[in-house]
Design a protein around this nucleic acid. Structure first.
Lengths: 218, 218, 218, 218
DNA sequence: AATGAATGAGAATTCATTCAT
DNA sequence: AATGAATGAATTCTCATTCAT
């Protein structure tokens, strides 16, 4: 249903027959993402994947394990395709920052648009699966915050953004990104990614008041 | 029916003996907020509340019903204490906006700090309880978005903020607020509300680049 | 709803206000008779009767007790109004037997038509309430069989009916009566009692073949 | 799906190991038939059948479902072995009717004697399990009445029995049959089926007065 | 590698009954 | 005599997990 290569991140040329494991992962993304983790029974997963109950336990220790796999996979791929590709060191001035962040927004929103089920699942349920998985998810978010924080501090140090950014700011930016993704994927999946990228970039860089100079000029 | 003791977190003046329903609501906030909704059994709730199993079903249809009550109650009170008290119409210029939003941030963060369990519960699990409750929660968030959107459009119309704010912007601001609350309540519950309010206000109004004029002046 | 004097078997002139006990008995007949014993909760009984839960236990030991009261009451009254009023000794020949049994059928069907709820309840559920109440009901039916058997043997002894009637016959007649009542009360409550009485009497006395002499004459 | 072992009360030839479903059906017949439906817990069923709780729900939706299965099965088999095998069309005169009905009585009583638990269960509790099952049982009895009625009308049309038989008569005959079965299975399980068949046939055809001609002759 | 019938611990929910007022 | 909030034992049902094949 969704593009295979994106979901699996693997080559699929050898055989057009998916392995049982792949089928289970795909089923989990779709069913968890639609019904929610807790409303999904292992039997839903296996029937959706077209495999037997026992087969599930051949590849995953338990229901939580496949969820955790999805989370790790999601965060890893998102990180690779976004922050890792856009180092603060490559930015010399406001104009370049503008360009880089625009690209980053495009990348994030585009990526999440490609896997709407998984994205919605992570946004909605990542904290709510179990105490154990909450801890794992908190670690992942903490890493993200560190990445964002490091990025921002680097820019601040070099005077490209204001100097007063802190960890709190990083959390705020994270929230902005999360709901931006939510908007792009869930609320308004028809909207152009480019338009949205500009819109959220504007808030990120200039807030509600917007570019003072532009405003002054107007 | 509305129980001040629960809402205010204070003892009632008439009698220092809480009703069974009050005890259950308090227990739910604490236990759901700590262990999470799904890891909480009705038996945890009643033992925490010090009432019998049957008593729970005297006041709530099921586990989901008490959660939904908490959600509605939370949103209603938060709305009352924030957006409802700060109309866009009372703002004439950037300075007044600054003051009003600062007050709003203080109010939101202060309010959520007072009920950390319930706040954390809503932030983490509101979407993940059940399909039915997800719908309810989505409605509540949709209302919030409408409030924020209306507020912003009013300000934009009067030229106090930039004219390009949209629904997407409202969702972005919502995300900022959510993670700001998360930071203030969960990540850094020791931080001064006032400091945080200034910090998030800065992002909200001026973004990462900050006040251009100030920046220029520096 | 149903005629009070019939249901209560008491005078009601002193006060038009029913006692709590009476209200409970009436409610039990109606609600047990409609919903069935097991689907009826004590709370249905008391809410239907307009009294409090505790009041129920002032008059009856438990839910089964009120059912048993209804059963005893029903059988006693039916016995009084039927077999007790029509002794075999009063019958001298076939013609008189015909007349007496017709009257008995009228009496039975008429009586049961007056309390359709209670009648349906007894017919449908008397054996199914509990092991204890089954025993009680079996005793009541055994008494009825004894009465019928005695009646038949007396007639047989005096050559008014055929000599070969046994206990088995008595049970067969009981079945006929039960389903006759069922038909008159449940299946076809509009049919004339008189017509039905003739019809069932015909089966009782002459079976399916009918009166041989009459048949021969025809 | 149909399980001969249960139906026939015999061991299957292929394998002497009953399936879980068979074991549950057998247990249900025995335990429901002894203790009664409402006094029987699902846990009684499974412990009697020697399977786990979960296994029960693998084969039946709930306790009511297995009861309904028993009812349908019972009625179907009884119908097949009685009315379906004895068409009114095969009867030409009173003598042949006598012979056919005698055979039918033998068949019914013999059949019910072979499954005393199930028979007693149906006779005692079929109406009392739940509102839903009452409806189902009423449908089954209505079908039976239709069968009996059709049979009787055919005979009446051809002058073999008296012309005045109606639906009411069919219900009366049904009652006679029910209590005859009850007598043969519950009250006097030692009595010879043949004797009983003659006895009930006598009532069915000639009623209490008996064969007029024979009586006159005597 | 795959199966799927069987398991049983564990959870939600009900409702007859009590008892302090 | 009447009340009705509170009780908690009892029961149904679910579903993640196992294991013999």
């Amino acid at each position: 249903m969704t593009d295979m290569s994106v979901i699996m991140g693997k080559f699929m040329s050898r055989s057009n027959k998916l392995t049982s494991r792949d089928r289970l992962v795909r089923a989990a993304i779709e069913v968890f993402g639609t019904r929610g983790y807790h409303a999904t029974r292992v039997s839903d997963l296996v029937s959706h994947a077209g495999v037997a109950h026992g087969t599930f336990y051949l590849y995953f220790d338990n229901k939580e394990a496949i969820f955790l796999y999805l989370v790790d996979d999601f965060f890893t791929r998102l990180q690779n395709q976004t922050l890792d590709r856009f180092p603060a060191s490559a930015v010399a001035n406001t104009g370049e920052l503008n360009a880089q962040l625009l690209e980053m927004w495009r990348s994030i929103l585009g990526h999440c648009r490609c896997e709407p089920f998984l994205t919605a699942l992570i946004l909605r349920e990542s904290y709510a699966v179990s105490l154990a998985s909450r801890t794992r998810v908190e670690e992942r978010f903490a890493q993200t915050i560190t990445s964002i924080g490091t990025y921002l501090k680097e820019l601040a140090k070099r005077g490209i953004i204001r100097g007063s950014v802190t960890d709190a700011s990083a959390w705020g930016i994270l929230g902005l990104i999360e709901r931006a993704i939510h908007y792009a994927v869930v609320v308004n999946p028809e909207a152009e990614v480019d338009t949205l990228a500009h819109e959220f970039l504007q808030i990120e860089l200039n807030g509600l008041l917007g570019d003072r100079e532009g405003l002054g000029a107007a």
